[in-house]
Design a protein around this nucleic acid. Sequence first.
DNA 1: TGCGATCCTTGATCTACATCAAGGATCCGC
DNA 2: GCGGATCCTTGATGTAGATCAAGGATCGCA
Lengths: 242, 242
Amino acid sequence: MNFPLKAAVKCGQCPIRHRAVCAHCDDDELTLLEHMKSYKTFAAGETILWRGDELAFVGSVVQGVASLSKTLEDGRTQMVGLLLPSDFIGRPGRQQIEFDVTATTEVTLCCFERKPFEQLIQNTPHVAQRLMELALDELDAARDWMLLLGRKTAREKIATFVQMLVRRTQVRHIDGKLHPLSMPMTREQIADYLGLTLETVSRQFNGLKKEGVIAFSDRRQFEVLDLAGLHAATGDDAEFIS
Amino acid sequence: MNFPLKAAVKCGQCPIRHRAVCAHCDDDELTLLEHMKSYKTFAAGETILWRGDELAFVGSVVQGVASLSKTLEDGRTQMVGLLLPSDFIGRPGRQQIEFDVTATTEVTLCCFERKPFEQLIQNTPHVAQRLMELALDELDAARDWMLLLGRKTAREKIATFVQMLVRRTQVRHIDGKLHPLSMPMTREQIADYLGLTLETVSRQFNGLKKEGVIAFSDRRQFEVLDLAGLHAATGDDAEFIS
DNA sequence: TGCGATCCTTGATCTACATCAAGGATCCGC
DNA sequence: GCGGATCCTTGATGTAGATCAAGGATCGCA
């Protein structure tokens, strides 16, 4: 099932080669990165970085799912980002992060030490440019999520979440239906991502299930039966397909 | 009161010279920008750019306040960004924007045509770097707002909003109290920024007023009487002063 | 200086979702 | 394949904030 990640996978064989921070690199640049990189694996639930930590390394998610989250004084938490394969952790010019980074499933990262990586950016505009694109993509995603958190109903939130999973996992279409997808997180984690409680998440999933929009085979495995119905349930303006 | 913006203010005299996209530029680079720039002014309420518009120009807010907002099918709207002086509109490599940009107060922009500006970026790393910093700052702000929208109570939202105004307008402190600040938007616009209704915004302002945390002289003019009380009301973890 | 438009306040009521509660399914280590 | 931990579902009840409604303040323009 999983891509077999040895300690030294060749960049050429890497599953995220054309989407990650290295996407625009030519062979020479890739060789440079090849020598700097190292893989780290984290078990599900393990914290990768704590808020306020000094950022020793940066890197890309190769496999699995990680999440960024923020917490209030009394413990209420909000997930502020979901990192899927090819997403990047850490920013040039920042030595601290202002949120916790946690492994949601088992996660494999392709890491670089921050200092050398920042020097490399100076001389490889392809990496700097890709980093900028990734940051702007994240900004777009954050703004879509602001609309969701501020104005959408529970049902619309769940539908939007499922739609996002479908899009980001780029699953193949079969006559309007879709291959089974995996739900990479618990109801509670989904609740923290959507600004809901786990009970409401559960009720809304079952609502969409009863209406025949989605179906669960397993509680972590589901498929979309009615893609048009799903889109309609998101509340988004159909005029703009984002 | 306002900085007197003629059609051709020298960059050296510009009020946002050291915070905007040109912050890191040396004199030569500034001369280049000087020749490319032009000022545009928009009246309060005027739309600067519509969602989906082809992005002909990019630029910085010099004076006034603009806002970015997204709308659902049925008209519910959420503000996804507030642009104060020195903030930048438009992104390299994107020819479209996915939200409306509106003048909240009268706004003056320092504009550049997009195509020439993008070429300029290639050769002036100082501008490219500053653009990256600005994008990352916006990403941080967006994530703080996600926590607010998803998990804060109405009271915490209002307190956080006031705190943000205090910080961003960098008002001088006088023994814990603060100089009068201006509220650059209506109750309805604030509601759209905080994911509330205008009635709730009004009630919460009056709540904080009754408790002596803030005071209004005019409905657009107020001051913070109890800064510590304000911070306490935001719900944020005091351990991390962001 | 007067009048309509806009903006704000305040009160009464409603409702979507949170909270509280309990039981059932699934997983995992022994 | 047994027993506790974790995760999920479902029901009953509570409540923060939305919605509905009406009146008051302030603004801008003749």
